[in-house]
Amino acid sequence: MRDIPVNLGGYKLVIVEPPAPKMREDANGAQVPVTDKAGVTQFVVALFAKLRTNPGERTQKGEEIKVTLATDPGDGFGEDVRVELVDARVSQYQIDNGAGRVTSGLSFKAMGIKHAPAPRGGGDK
């Protein structure tokens, strides 16, 4: 299944690697930007996603995720900035390297990112 809409509103998302053009290696070994079907450059951002908790609840571990962005997020999205994903989607993938090893997981995509509102009441760790 591909491009399943996902609601990450219950998670605190913090930038750990600022947005940058998504790169891949071409046949000659050179790094080239990844583009969509229309030729628009894709971006990637690394986020730390942690479930929001209420006062008195136990804090759970978080997870680092990389998200492909369909648009240039612009300036103002450096490390430690809290963000929300715009039109977030998730896809499952599975890669067989041909030597008996299979890797599978989830890939995250979004149309873009925006600044998250300030936390309310201090119960958001």
Rank of each mutant, 00 (worst) to 15 (best):
M1D: 08
D3K: 10
D3A: 12
P5W: 02
V6T: 03
L8I: 10
L8G: 08
G10L: 13
G10F: 10
K12S: 10
V14S: 07
I15R: 00
I15T: 01
I15M: 04
V16Y: 08
E17C: 05
P18C: 00
P18V: 04
P19G: 00
P21V: 01
M23P: 00
M23A: 04
M23Q: 03
M23C: 01
D26V: 04
D26H: 01
N28H: 13
N28M: 11
G29N: 06
G29D: 04
A30H: 12
V32K: 02
P33Q: 06
P33H: 06
D36A: 03
G39F: 05
G39P: 00
G39T: 02
V40M: 11
V44P: 13
V45C: 02
V45M: 12
L47A: 13
K50P: 03
K50F: 06
K50R: 12
R52F: 15
T53A: 06
T53Q: 10
N54P: 13
N54M: 11
N54G: 15
N54F: 13
P55C: 07
R58N: 09
R58W: 15
Q60E: 07
Q60P: 02
G62L: 11
E64Q: 14
I65L: 09
K66I: 10
K66G: 12
V67G: 02
L69K: 01
P73S: 05
P73A: 01
G76N: 09
G76W: 09
E79C: 01
E79K: 06
V83D: 01
E84T: 00
V86F: 10
V86Q: 06
D87I: 11
S91Q: 00
Q92T: 15
Q92N: 15
Y93M: 04
Q94L: 15
D96V: 00
N97S: 09
A99L: 13
G100E: 03
T103S: 04
F108T: 08
K109Y: 14
K109A: 14
K109W: 14
G112L: 05
H115Y: 04
H115C: 08
A116G: 13
A116M: 08
P117D: 14
A118Y: 13
P119W: 11
P119G: 05
R120H: 13
R120E: 13
G121T: 11
G121D: 11
K125Q: 10
